[in-house]
Each structure stands twice: as structure tokens, then as C-alpha cells.
Design a binder for these strands. Structure first.
Lengths: 188, 188, 188, 188
DNA sequence: TATGAATGAGTGTTCATTCAT
DNA sequence: AATGAATGAACACTCATTCAT
């Protein structure tokens, strides 16, 4: 039941955004009554937070599992691949995500506490770069800056692809990004 | 008058977001009456759109002027520098921008028509890459993909810097990004 | 079972009033499920009515028994004493009663039909006065007016005492009221 | 405008009670929109409080003015007369009053702060009794108890009269109450 | 032209009541 | 009989927009 509501909420929030989603629309989409939603969530806001956090934890888990034990170069690749694949599978959520990470839309954003999640998540990823630097594989660049560059690039590429601004297959997205990150765009 | 309203709107929208901004708050901030706002704008939404479009055109103009006549490598650098500087000067708007580009929040987003702007803007920038490829300076990568990577990376770096996730000076942001884009992160 | 529900309802209604009492709170207080309450009562309103009527009948029975066979002067005293004692013992209900008698709070008050009860109750009490007049003990005053004066005075005194507006022991309440009713406040 | 709303609120609240009165009904009765009510009052509750307090202050003012400078016996008479006359003129409000004084119906009753008003009001009236005792006109009875007896009796008599439980003219109400209070019911 | 009081449609949330188990 | 999860009608309050002055 809670499952059904969460799923429906994800769909409707994704399509319409937080403010244009009405609670009764989620209820309809979930095939339950409005009152039932309030059995599981204290407010629309709390439901929204749950939608986002559930998915982000899923993504984080997948990424962490994928990079575990890998050498830096390989880890960076699977990180990129995992994110692309995740959002390929989760188009709905991706749109929501684009609205939220780095751009909280709702009041009391502190209740969502996404900043904290994002901080932790990028910290874990930064370890890849730190490891690569230590091992002499990567240049001595600011680790978190590298991660922010990659994740920003990823978001933008995926968004453009979803919106039809660019005509690239997921595999091309991965390859292009990995190529640039690893070796840059200069021919020499 | 319209100027004052636009300025006030930018401030309030930036601070609170579209839905948490009340029209009377903009009126107060601008020192005019609510009715006066409606002399210049048909709706809150239209005012919002004007705020965004005005600034984006400003950015576009600055970028276009900066890259004009430059060789590809230099053009890419000044593009990055111009964007960083622009958003340094326009913190307010940057927050708004983060909420909007790639994540339209308002209903009838087609009325904002940011997609069209973004399409055109990235097209112009893609020319830099195309030019570089033609001249044998850049690898044969998907031009728009490269631009999307750079602009996504930029947004993320600036956002993290604004939010305090990362401690980097604007100059470091530029340098790191240029380094990675041009030469990648591998040491060899 | 019905007993337990009635008792719990009395407590919760007394504490919170009709509208601020939720049916599930009564269920909790009674240690039964909401559904069970609806086995015994068709609605919250009916339960409320039962709480009030049960107690009022109890009061009526006590008063009637106390005054039976007494001479008018004595009957008036024991009436006052019985009421004071009853509400001393039933603080909870007294608060409820203050909300209801003479001030029906719920819709369809005719369903509660307290007016009818009150009419009957005051009629019985008026007999004391009529009897006293007939026997030449009391002045020729409007019997029901006298009863209304006494019962209104009683309610007010008890209420003020419960609320702490006045610092009088139950015995003082009885004595003062009896003194005034019987002999007035003038010294002569 | 505020005047119109207050008047309409008094009528609707009186007829239906707090909880059964809908804000839109008050708006209709006042011939304004719902929004307009909220220009003058922050909430339904605040409007309710204003209705009650406005009238009670009016009553208090009339009573205070009427008893000023009078000798105790006369003061007591005009107090009773003033209250009866006031509620004769304010049938609507009287019903509301019966619901509230001594029986607060709304949540956060402290916001209404009627207790404080009632305390102050009865204090002023008690002065009449104290004065009479000092002058040797009244017996040495608890002054506030006497006032509570009189005001409770008054409320009950008026209520019964309004509800048709008793058939007494206002003048009879005054006379009967004054007679009993001053000289009691015993013939001797 | 500028004002800001008035409007009223729109919506998150509550809770008495029902009914499948 | 007893349960308590599910229902959905109801309502206070907000705020973008209008328009008389």
C-alpha cells in the first residue's frame, strides 16, 4: 500500500513538480483515497521527501556496490556507467531529481536534508580520485572538484538526452564523458 | 518602473523560489503597488519568465562577445571564465537559474520557452568545438556533448561553491575545469 | 462494554468538549476499537447524548429521592445539598453539563432533547415551592422562577468554585445559597 | 466593513454555535467575500473572540455606568435591570453568551481570555455588596458569592424565558429576583 | 496612471463512519 | 462479535488577479 503510494507519488511529482501535484492526484494514481495517503505520511511534503530519499539511497547503494574494490580508473568508469544506467531505468525519477539536487524547490528544505546526503555521497566518490592521486594514476587535482565536474556533466548530458536536445545513445554518453574526463579534448 | 519591478522580482524569486514568492512581496520590494505590476506584466508567471530571460540574454550576449574571433582553445577558456564571472556577480540570479535551467518548475513551461533558448545557446557554443575539430586541434567528439559536459560541470562547481560544499576560489574553478576539459585527469 | 464506552466518553468529552473529542480517543480510553463503539451507538452524537442523559437521570433520581416526603423548607435544602454533592462527586461531568444545559453545542440539538428533560425536572422541583406557598410558608412567588433562580445560582457558584474564581467550601456554598434564598441579603 | 462582518458573525455564531458556523456563511451574511473577512481577522477564532469581547465590554460599560454613585440597594437593583434590559435587546448575543461564559467551547480558550474578563467584572460588582456590608445594610455574606448567585440566577431566568420554559415578562423577572435576593422566600 | 481593497477558486488535511476480515 | 484500515466529504485559509477610485 505504502509501496503503491510511493510509486504513484514518484510518477505524479515527476510529471508535474511538487507544487503542481495535488494530493488527490496521487491518490487517484495510486488507486487509494486521499485519507489513506495520510495514514502513511503526515504531509504532502513528507511524501515528497520519501520519494526522493528512497531513490537516492538506491542510487547510492548501487554506485557504492559497483565501485567497491575497483582500481581508480575502473572505478570512475563504473561510477559513470552505473549512474547512466540507473537514470535510464528511472526516467521518471530523473526528472524529479533534476528539479531537486542542487535546486530545492520546497519550503523547509532542511527537512529534506538533501544537502547532507549530497555531501556524503560526493565524499564517497571523491575517495576514488584521492586513491588515484595517491597511486600516481591521476593528476593532483582537487578530488571533490573532479567529482562535481563529472556528476554535473552527467546530469546535463542525461537531461539533454531526455529532453531531446541531443541525440546520443547511453553508451555514447558514457564513452564521451569517460574519454574527456580521462584524456581531455585536445588532440595532442 | 518596469526596471524596478524586474530587479525586485529577481531578488525575491531568487531568495524564495517561484511558489513561495507572493506578488505583493515583489510589489513591496519594488516600492510599487500590486496593480502596477499588472500594468507591465499579465501574470506572475510572465514576470518570472522575464526575469529569467533578461538575465540569460545578458549572459548570452557576454559570452558571445567574449568568444568572438577567438581561436577554439582560447574561446573555450574565455567561455568558462565569462560564465564563472557572470555568476560570481549575479549570485541572486544564479540560484534562480539553478532552479530553472534543466528543471522547469512552473506550469506551462512552454510559455517560458527556455528550451528554445538553451538549444540556441548551446548551438552557438558548439561552434567552438566544431571549429576546433575542423582545425585539428580538438578530437573528433560530439560537439554539443562537449558543451553539455562543460556547462553541466560549471553549474555543479558553482553551485557547490555557493552552497559551501567545496572550498574553491573562482580562479581555481576555472583552472581545474579547463585543465580537465583540455587534458583529462590521467597523468600520462 | 457499553458501560466502559460510556465512562470513557464522559471523561474525554468532559476534558475536551464535543468537537475536540475524536471518536478514536474515546475508543482508546475505553480500550476498545472504533468499530465497537459503533456497535452500540449510531453516531458520535448519540454517544454524547447518552453520556449527558444518563448522568442527568442519575441526578434527577437522587434529587427526587432526597426531597420525597420532606416539608418544603427542608426539601429545598436537601435539593441544594444533593446537587452540590452530586457535582462535587462528578467534576468531570459537571464541566460537560456546564457546556450543555442551557447551551447546546451540537447540531440537531432536538435529538438530544434536553429541553424536555429540563422542563420536567424543573416542574418536579417547582412542586416544592408550590407546596410551600400552599402551606403558607413561602411567599406567593412564581414557583418555577424560584427554582430557576436557585438552579442558576447553584450552577454559577459551582462553576466559579471549580474554576477557582471563588474560594468557598461546598458547605459554604450550600449555606450561603440557602440563607439568601430563604431570607435574602438585607439585614433588617 | 469590519462592522458588517462583526454583526453578521454575531448573528451566525449565535444561531449555529462556533463549530457549526462556516466562514463562508458569515461572508454571505455580511455580503462580502471570504477573503475580505481575512483582511480583518486572522482566523475564524479571532473573529469569534471579537464578537464576544465587543459585546461583553458593552455590557460591562452599561452596568458600570448604571451603578456608579448609587447606594448599595439601589445599585443592586439597577445592575439587575441593566442586565435584563441588555439581553432583551441582544437576544442574538445572549444565546452566544450562554454558550460561552462558564462554558468555553473553542480550543485555545485562553486566547479568548474570558476568564480574566469575568473575574474583573464580578470583582466590580462585588464592590456593591462590600459597600452594603460596610454600611450595615447587607448581611455579612461572601460578596462574590452573592454576585455569583445573582448573575447565575439572571442567566437562568433569561435563558428559560428565551427558550419558553417560563412565561415571565422582563419586569417580572427583575421584580422576582430582586425580591428574593433582598428578602428571601420565607413569609415571616 | 497608480492604488490596494475585494474577490473566490483552489487545496492540504481531518476524522466520523463503514465494512471486509 | 470485534477490529482498524480505508474512505471521502467537508472546510479554513491563501493569494493571484481585478477594478473602482
Amino acid at each position: 500500500m505504502k509501496e503503491r503510494i510511493l510509486k504513484a507519488a514518484e510518477e505524479v511529482f515527476s510529471e508535474k513538480g511538487y507544487y503542481n501535484t495535488k494530493v488527490y492526484q496521487i491518490a487517484e494514481a495510486a488507486g487509494v483515497s486521499v485519507g489513506t495517503i495520510y495514514r502513511f505520511y503526515e504531509s504532502k511534503e513528507e511524501l515528497y521527501a520519501d520519494v526522493i530519499k528512497t531513490k537516492l539511497k538506491e542510487l547510492e547503494k548501487k554506485v557504492v556496490r559497483a565501485i567497491r574494490g575497483k582500481e581508480p580508473e575502473e572505478a570512475l568508469r563504473v561510477y559513470i556507467e552505473t549512474v547512466v544506467d540507473f537514470f535510464e531505468d528511472e526516467r521518471n525519477f530523473f526528472e524529479l531529481f533534476m528539479r531537486e539536487v542542487g535546486s530545492l524547490v520546497i519550503p523547509n528544505e532542511e527537512r529534506l536534508n538533501l544537502s547532507e546526503w549530497y555531501d556524503r555521497y560526493t565524499s564517497k566518490l571523491s575517495k576514488i580520485i584521492e586513491d588515484g592521486i595517491r597511486k600516481g594514476i591521476f593528476k593532483n587535482l582537487h578530488p571533490r572538484a573532479v567529482i562535481l565536474i563529472i556528476s554535473g556533466a552527467l546530469k546535463n548530458l542525461l537531461y539533454a538526452s531526455v529532453k531531446g536536445f541531443i541525440n546520443l545513445e547511453p553508451e555514447d554518453i558514457k564513452d564521451t564523458l569517460i574519454e574527456i574526463v580521462e584524456r581531455g579534448i585536445l588532440k595532442a
